[in-house]
Computed example of a mutant assay.
Amino acid sequence: MSNPISSEISLDEAGKHVGYLRLPHSVHRSAYGWIPIPIASIRRGEGPTILIMAGSHGDEYEGQIIVSTLIRDIAPGMIHGQLILLPMANYPAALAGQRTSPIDDGNLNRLFPGDPYGRPTQIIADYIENTLLKRAQYLVDMHSGGSSLLYDGANMLALEPQDADEQAKLRGMLSAFGLPKAFLHAPNPLNISAAARRQGAISILTELGGAGMSSKHLIDQARQGVLNLLAHLGMLNGDLVPDGPPCTTRFLRVEGPNHYVYSHDDGLYEPLAELGTRVEKGQPAARIHFPDTPLREPVTVLFNGDGELVCRRVQAQARRGDCLFQLAARDPDRL
């Protein structure tokens, strides 16, 4: 079965075209309706094809603002190649301001490669992987911490390179993007980085702040980084090309389970370390308090590894299984 999504715009025509992907969605209030997923294509001449997207998680806002701004600001005469831009990739989630879709509770970045026969979020995932990424050599997917997490400033994520050639190319791309920190991580076959790799594209994800807010500083920094990356890849020219990357990037690695701290109790968590600080294995990370049982002593949660504290939970209320902290360690040899 082919994917039921249809596009109002042609991805093969030169120029700037803005419209919607139409995902058929028959419900009580709209028997013959469709879900409108905004899309833009900017194309001119020969060059790379780059997919830039945001709104995979609907409560992550900086990326949605940046991608919308790029659609307005970039004209066909400024580029060589093609930009495909999705500012609200999981439109139902973005419209609701939720991490997951209110229609099917779908987490778009955990549903690749998707399913054209599936629920709406699975259909979106299939279209992104098998129609859009199939055309692209590069992916930039813009995330932030959302409502429940807060990252320490502006960060980039990338898959561990498969060989020396990819390592060199990825280091150049991350340095050109130029956010303060870049984390390498192992592949997860369900997320979009793995989808890009399956389609032969190199991907960079961002994590920009969070806490359900938007930050002008992070928006400006990441927008400059995207534009500088496009120039680095030989696509962008003209007045929008910045003087250089916003920062010198530090390269780190997320070392699997040892770099995550979870609550094993329901209660209120008191953080015992601040974002940006270095911590050691066995150091107290948080105390879980139980105001509903006042005489019960709080439980102390420990860090499982050494590293820099790069992300923390926002809400003080925590349940068993909630992530409280994420760490990363310096990894100069990998990149």
Rank of each mutant, 00 (worst) to 15 (best):
K169S: 10
L170G: 04
R171T: 14
R171K: 14
G172Q: 15
G172A: 14
M173V: 10
L174M: 14
L174Q: 06
S175N: 11
A176K: 08
A176S: 15
F177C: 02
G178K: 04
G178P: 04
L179M: 15
L179P: 07
L179S: 07
K181S: 11
A182Y: 06
A182Q: 06
L184V: 12
H185R: 10
H185S: 08
H185F: 12
A186D: 14
N188R: 13
N188V: 10
P189C: 10
P189V: 01
N191G: 12
I192F: 13
I192S: 14
S193K: 11
S193H: 12
A194M: 01
A194V: 04
A194R: 02
A195Q: 10
A196P: 04
A196C: 06
R197G: 03
R197I: 06
R198L: 08
G200K: 11
S203V: 07
I204N: 06
T206W: 03
E207P: 13
E207V: 12
L208F: 09
L208V: 08
G209C: 11
G209A: 12
G212K: 09
G212S: 02
G212W: 08
M213W: 03
M213H: 08
S214D: 10
S214K: 13
S215K: 08
K216S: 11
K216C: 06
L218V: 09
I219M: 05
I219E: 01
I219W: 07
D220Q: 08
A222L: 12
R223V: 00
Q224N: 00
Q224R: 13
Q224M: 06
V226M: 08
N228V: 02
N228A: 11
L230N: 03
H232R: 07
H232E: 13
G234W: 08
M235N: 00
L236H: 07
L236R: 05
N237W: 05
G238T: 06
G238V: 09
G238F: 11
G238K: 09
D239P: 10
D243G: 15
P245V: 01
T248G: 03
T248C: 00
T249F: 06
T249L: 10
T249S: 05
R250W: 00
F251R: 05
L252Y: 07
R253M: 06
R253E: 05
V254G: 04
V254H: 14
G256N: 11
G256T: 04
H259E: 03
H259F: 01
H259Y: 00
V261G: 04
Y262G: 00
S263F: 01
H264K: 05
D265F: 10
D265I: 01
D265C: 04
D266W: 02
G267K: 04
G267R: 02
E270M: 11
P271G: 05
E274M: 08
L275F: 05
V279I: 15
V279A: 09
E280D: 13
E280V: 12
K281M: 12
G282T: 13
Q283C: 05
P284A: 09
A285P: 11
I288G: 03
H289P: 02
H289D: 05
F290K: 15
D292N: 13
D292F: 09
P294T: 09
P294E: 07
